[in-house]
């Protein structure tokens, strides 16, 4: 379980997040919703460790990871798919995927894991020897998610994974998110600004506005219209 306690964070002098508390359970999808610029990506960067919090704590599996470096957190089972995908453009698809294994310090059966990944994203298998930068946006997004999954995470951080992608691939990514949560018991923290998309795969939601949590609840028990006002620009 990921537990964020009273997190206050930001860059240099400006505070972006204030007193945010949030939980992500294994095997469930937790969505963080909010308009642009409310601090969703900053939250993700704090969880993975690229930005260090000003105050508050981040706990993963009952261990305080607030001060750990990103690579240590990744090796403890946290996978990260950043906004903008950030695949390595001059490396092949295969090399990008192999880098995912860096998250697992011990020896693993690499080919078995890769086969599972190709089942989820068949297009990657056809593109193995293409450069990552030559892929289309949707393919790059699949590669970025696949690369994180290669590391066998128990918590997956997805920062707007469906932004600017064609509907058929949005559908595929949605199914993958549901599948890894239900079958592999992975906790998913999904940042999204589209309410319908978020509600179509999340179990629980938080809404951020101006850096604080303004609403939260079970997706099944919540009426979308009630929270729509927080998201309309």
């Amino acid at each position: 379980m990921l537990s964020i306690k009273n997190l206050t964070a930001g860059y240099e002098q400006s505070v972006v997040l204030e007193n945010v508390s949030l939980k992500v359970l294994k095997g469930s999808v937790t969505a963080v919703l909010g308009r642009n610029g409310v601090g969703k990506t900053t939250l993700m960067k704090n969880v993975i460790g690229l930005v260090k919090p000003i105050d508050g704590a981040i706990e993963w599996e009952n261990e305080d990871i607030t001060l750990l470096s990103p690579e240590k957190r990744v090796q403890k089972g946290i996978g990260y798919v950043p906004q903008g995908r950030e695949i390595f453009p001059t490396m092949t698809v295969e090399e990008n995927l192999l880098l995912g294994f860096e998250a697992i310090p011990r020896k693993v059966n690499q080919s078995k894991i890769l086969e599972e990944i190709y089942d989820l994203f068949p297009v990657l298998k056809e593109m193995l020897h293409r450069k990552g930068g030559d892929l289309s946006g949707g393919q790059q997004q699949q590669l970025a998610i696949a690369r994180a999954l290669v590391g066998q995470p128990q918590l997956l951080l997805l920062d707007e994974p469906m932004e600017g992608i064609q509907p058929s691939i949005v559908q595929l990514i949605r199914e993958v998110i549901l599948q890894i949560a239900k079958e592999k018991r992975v906790g998913v923290l999904l940042v999204e600004h589209n309410l319908d998309l978020a509600f179509s795969c999340a179990d629980y939601f938080y809404i951020l506005d101006r850096g604080t949590v303004v609403a939260q609840g079970d997706v099944a028990e919540t009426n979308k219209h009630e929270i729509q006002p927080y998201l309309t620009v």
């Binding site: 690579e71 990744v74 090796q75 950030e86 490396m91 880098l99 998250a103 697992i104 310090p105």
Partner: peptide, 21 residues
């Protein structure tokens, strides 16, 4: 070598994959 190229290309992303830069 792959780790080295990854760090050269994108330091932050490399560390987010578990590579100690």
């Amino acid at each position: 070598g792959r780790r080295m190229r990854a760090v050269t290309l994108n330091r932050d992303m490399a560390s987010c994959l578990g590579i100690s830069s």
